[in-house]
Design a protein around this nucleic acid. Structure first.
Length: 991
DNA sequence: GTCCGACCGTA
DNA sequence: TTACGGTCGGACG
């Protein structure tokens, strides 16, 4: 580079964010890929380059480069832990565009520059000063104020979106100081978006005024005592150190080590076909035409480029045709190219599948070495481990506590595990440590023991741990992180930057066994970990973990962290190999904090209501018992189906209905109802007694026992990885099966109440599974009915039986409704006959008629079964897999069961995916709207919020809109989603 | 103490 | 006919 040359540096990362927010959403037509920032970027570059080659325009670059941020962790994090710590994850629609814009840069035949550990700004600063020293002039394409410190007579900036030049006068006009004072000004004002602290109470105007008066920051700090305004004086004196730190943070480095010399930025001629190929792949028709014309390229002769799309870290594009049509043999989805998720070092592995397999083989035979476990009992050692973890950027983490209930558990210690990649790049050499915190001495001692010696004080250990866990640039790997997340949250630590091996396994293997650590360890590592019970004992003689001897606890806890880290090394590439990174990153991982927060909030119940109900139910059941004994002629255990069966079908000689699978006469409600309908008195009483005792034992008696002693609320626990289909489950207590169908049962719902000054808001999807079915099977009548908002069951009846919807008998509609549900469940004549209490032949006729009217449904069901048989799994519309390994069973009933389940899974699972997406989006949407509503519960198609009275009206439309649009933008459904929402004092009235 | 089957609450 | 979790009785050790 020489005197008179002109260097253009594009701040690529800055442009991406700005373009994304400034340019309206734009999606690639063929598949919905968001491309608005890519489009803005390409148009901007094209204009700059066109002008550059037009010598009649004043500024003509001789050198050109686009600079990007490499990662979020830079040397600034060493200076200040919290630097950029408040940055939230980029919007979903922006994520795939990061990679695309780098591809675009290369397609433009321009250098694409980034360097690990440095921000784009530092690279820009370094190149700028180098070019300046060589006598060249520089134009930085950016409007970021952080870069204004670089402006000199030879260096200016250009805001391409506003077509505005920024030179020395513009900086002074905007900030009141010349560029060389921008550093001091920023040091004083701070920057909330980057979390640069600055001096509180000092804004740009005051800062400029002070700099005018004192010249620079050091002088100001030295002479701060002279400031007249008392408040301002105190603030500056008290925060002098913060200001100095801030100055370090905002000062751009001009000594960044460079991989690419300036000379390589020499502007090359445009490669027309290459650029056209990229633009065609993006489907930017106008720009394609323009570029083709300007570069003399025959656009029709150019094939669109293959541009890998990285949705998150996944390389698999959103193949919507496949995702939305009935799954067929053609869609294997397994042949995805490598994504970032596997770029952990093994350059020799050609494909993700090969890497996943070699990793699995490696870890299956790698020995677990307990000699590499230590107990950490002093702060210096802990600091060293944490420093190593931060250097490595990857650490397994696990907590040991006194309870399985994360809301009540007491933290006893924690463990860390690190891979030594120098010893083995694949990660099989692992060291692990346990940090005991509150272990006691004297197990078995009746008085309990005293505090064991040489344990780091909890406060000291947690303050160290906080730095590690809250650093998003260090990946924390945990098994069932939601538990540890809650434990740490209760200690004021919010884990950021994590992977969860349980969820990774769930995404890869839902339906193939369980996903607990012991099972995964045996499955993938061939290693049976030390059992928890071996530490604490079980039953009456068990102790809590704080009474376990520290040496033994270390062996157990360190092994858990070790195993977790090993599992991560196996499962991460497996995720990529199967093209499931996107499912994991968008439908599983983000739900961890969301669910943890819901569990932490809990919900208030009115114990008085429940206790009154308990009394009423006890009285009612006792009265019924007396009558039952009278009718039976003896006393017996009413709750024993065996004894009841003997009375009803033995002693009293009533006709038995069905048998249970163990051969006993069934006493199910259905059987008893049938007997009651024939005029028998006893069965009716049994049914009533069962309902009362069920409500009492499962709900009114049990729920008060779950009220948390401190919060006075009930905190359920959601399982993310328990179901085959992708639904959540709830336990301890299960709040997803609170009664609603009977009037008696609904009384229990009135005990779920809002805190004073608030309302409960319930928002539920209307007919979401039938809508999903209409979408995936693409049934014209169903789509039309949902588009028109008509009664779907009545429409079905009308289609099937030719009865007009107006004045339709309720029995006809009821049957159609049962059929609709049956379809979702993978209908059989046997099941439908049972449900409707009709003959199997009649049910069979119904099904036949249904399929005649809706042949697309039969096609969908047949295709799904065939897909499941071929692949052993089925997929939801978002690509989640549910495995049915027994679908090829030689036992016909097993096979049929698996076929029905695999027909149901894409429907139930897609609905589950949709509400998961809504749950991830809802908290940001509420805070964006400055609303304080708190999501408390999820019941499969319903979300329950606690909302301040004054905010109810503004909250409901936001919740409804997020839920109704939850499939977007990943998927544009062919059927609208409908959500009903209501507010009330209790759950019964809100629902 | 632990497990399993029957039953029943929800979507 | 799908997906769950909780309670109970009863059998096992």
């Amino acid at each position: 580079m020489k005197n008179g040359d002109h260097l253009f540096l594009v701040d690529g990362s800055g442009f991406i964010f700005r373009a994304f927010h400034a340019i309206p959403p734009l999606n690639r037509k063929s598949d919905g890929l968001p491309v608005n920032a890519v489009s803005g970027f390409c148009n901007m570059l094209w204009k700059l380059l066109t002008d550059a080659r037009d010598t009649s325009v004043g500024v003509t670059p001789t050198h050109f480069a686009v600079i990007f941020d490499y990662s979020s962790k830079t040397f600034r994090n060493e200076l200040y832990d919290l630097y950029k710590a408040n940055r939230s994850a980029p919007p979903e629609d922006l994520i795939p565009q990061f990679g695309l814009i780098r591809h675009a840069t290369r397609a433009f035949n321009l250098p694409c520059i980034e360097k690990e550990g440095f921000e784009a700004d530092d690279l820009i600063a370094t190149y700028t000063r180098l070019a300046e020293q060589a006598g060249a002039s520089v134009t930085i394409i950016s409007s970021d104020k952080d870069l204004m410190q670089l402006v000199t007579p030879n260096v200016s900036m250009y805001d391409s979106m506003k077509d505005k030049q920024i030179s020395i006068p513009e900086v002074i006009e905007k900030w009141g100081v010349p560029p060389e004072k921008m550093i001091d000004l920023q040091a004083m004002t701070g920057d909330s978006t980057d979390n640069v602290p600055g001096i509180p109470g000092i804004g740009p105007k005051t800062a400029a005024q002070l700099l005018e008066e004192y010249g620079d920051l050091d002088t100001l700090l030295a002479r701060a005592g002279e400031i007249k305004q008392a408040k301002r004086r105190e603030n500056i004196i008290a925060n002098a150190d913060l200001a100095r730190l801030s100055r370090q943070l905002v000062t751009l480095r001009t000594d960044t080590p460079l991989d690419v010399p300036l000379e390589d930025f020499q502007l090359e001629p445009q490669d027309g076909p290459r650029l056209v190929a990229f633009l065609k792949a993006m489907e930017f028709t106008t720009l394609t035409r323009r570029v083709a014309a300007a570069t003399d390229t025959d656009a029709d002769a150019v094939e669109p480029a293959t541009v890998p799309v990285e949705w998150g870290a996944d390389a698999r594009g959103p193949d919507l045709d496949k995702a939305s049509a009935a799954p067929g043999p053609s869609s294997t989805g397994d042949a995805a190219p490598a994504g970032e998720g596997v770029s952990t070092g093994e350059a020799g592995e050609a494909t993700p599948e090969a890497l996943a397999q070699s990793r699995a083989a490696l870890f299956a035979s790698a020995a677990i070495d307990h000699a590499r476990y230590v107990a950490i009992r002093d702060v210096a050692t802990l600091d060293a481990w944490i420093a190593d973890a931060r250097d490595a950027g990857l650490v397994a983490f696990d907590t040991e506590t006194t309870s399985l209930d994360a809301m009540q558990a007491e933290l006893v210690g924690f463990s860390l595990a690190l891979a030594d990649y120098a010893k083995d790049p694949a990660g099989t050499v692992i060291r692990a440590a346990y940090v005991p915190l509150i272990h006691k001495t004297g197990v078995g001692d009746l008085l309990g023991g005293g505090h064991a010696e040489n344990q780091i004080p909890v406060r000291d250990a947690l303050s160290r741990l906080k730095v590690l866990l809250e650093d998003p640039s260090v990946l924390k790997v945990a098994q069932n992180l939601k538990y540890d997340y809650l434990i740490m949250k209760r200690h004021g630590i919010t884990v950021k930057g994590f992977d969860d091996t349980m969820l990774m396994s769930y995404v890869v293997d839902a339906g193939n066994g369980t996903h607990g650590m012991d099972a995964l360890s045996e499955r993938w590592l061939g290693h049976k970990p030390i059992a928890y019970k071996d530490m604490t004992g079980s039953g009456k003689s068990s102790v809590t973990f704080d009474y376990v001897d520290i040496d033994r606890a270390t062996a157990y806890a360190a092994e858990d962290a070790d195993v977790t880290l090993r599992l991560w090394h196996v499962l991460k590439p497996r995720l990529a190999a199967k093209g499931l990174v996107r499912v994991y990153e968008r439908l599983e991982r983000p739900l961890v904090p969301v669910l943890a927060h819901m569990e932490e909030r809990g919900i208030t119940i009115d114990r008085q209501i429940l206790s009154r109900l308990s009394g009423e139910l006890a009285q009612g059941a006792a009265a019924l018992e007396d009558e039952i004994y009278k009718l039976a002629g003896e006393t017996f255990t009413v709750g024993s189906p065996k004894q009841l069966g003997d009375i009803l079908f033995g002693k009293m000689g009533l006709p038995g209905g069905s048998k249970t699978k163990t051969g006993q006469w069934s006493t199910s409600a259905q059987v008893l109802e049938d007997l009651a309908a024939e005029g028998h008195e006893l069965p009716r009483k049994i049914v009533d007694w069962r309902q009362m005792t069920k409500l009492k034992s499962t709900y009114t008696d049990a729920l008060p026992g779950f009220v948390h002693p401190d919060t006075k609320r009930v905190h359920t626990s959601y399982a993310l990885a328990a179901t085959t289909t992708g639904r959540l489950s709830s336990s301890d207590p299960n709040l997803q099966n609170i009664p609603v169908r009977t009037a008696e049962g609904r009384k229990i719902r009135t005990a779920f109440i809002a805190t004073p000054g608030h309302k409960l808001v319930s928002a539920d999807y209307s007919q979401i599974e039938l809508r999903v079915l209409a979408h995936v099977a693409d049934i014209p009548q169903l789509r039309q009915a949902f588009a028109d908002g008509v009664d779907i069951h009545a429409m079905t009846a009308s289609e099937m039986f030719g009865v007009p919807v107006e004045g339709m008998p309720s029995e006809i509609r009821r049957r159609a409704k049962a059929i609709n549900f049956g379809i979702i469940y993978g209908i059989s004549a046997f099941g439908l006959a049972n449900q409707l209490s009709i003959e199997r032949s009649e049910a069979s006729d119904y099904i036949k008629k249904y399929f005649e009217r809706f042949p697309g449904i039969r096609d969908y069901m047949e295709n799904t079964k065939a897909f499941a048989r071929e692949h052993g799994y089925v997929e939801t519309i978002f690509g989640r897999r549910a495995h049915y390994p027994d679908i090829r069973s030689s036992i016909p009933s097993h096979r049929a069961f698996n076929e029905r389940a695999s027909i149901n899974a894409p429907i139930q699972g897609s609905a589950a995916d949709i509400i998961r997406r809504a749950m991830v989006k809802i908290e940001p949407a509420l805070s964006e709207a400055k609303l304080s509503a708190r999501m408390l519960l999820q019941v499969h198609d319903e979300l329950i919020f606690e909302v301040e009275d004054a905010e109810v009206e503004r909250t409901i439309p936001i919740v409804v809109s997020v839920m109704e649009n939850a499939a977007m933008p990943a998927l544009d459904m062919r059927v609208p989603l409908k959500v009903d929402a209501r507010a009330a004092m209790n759950w019964d009235e809100a629902h």
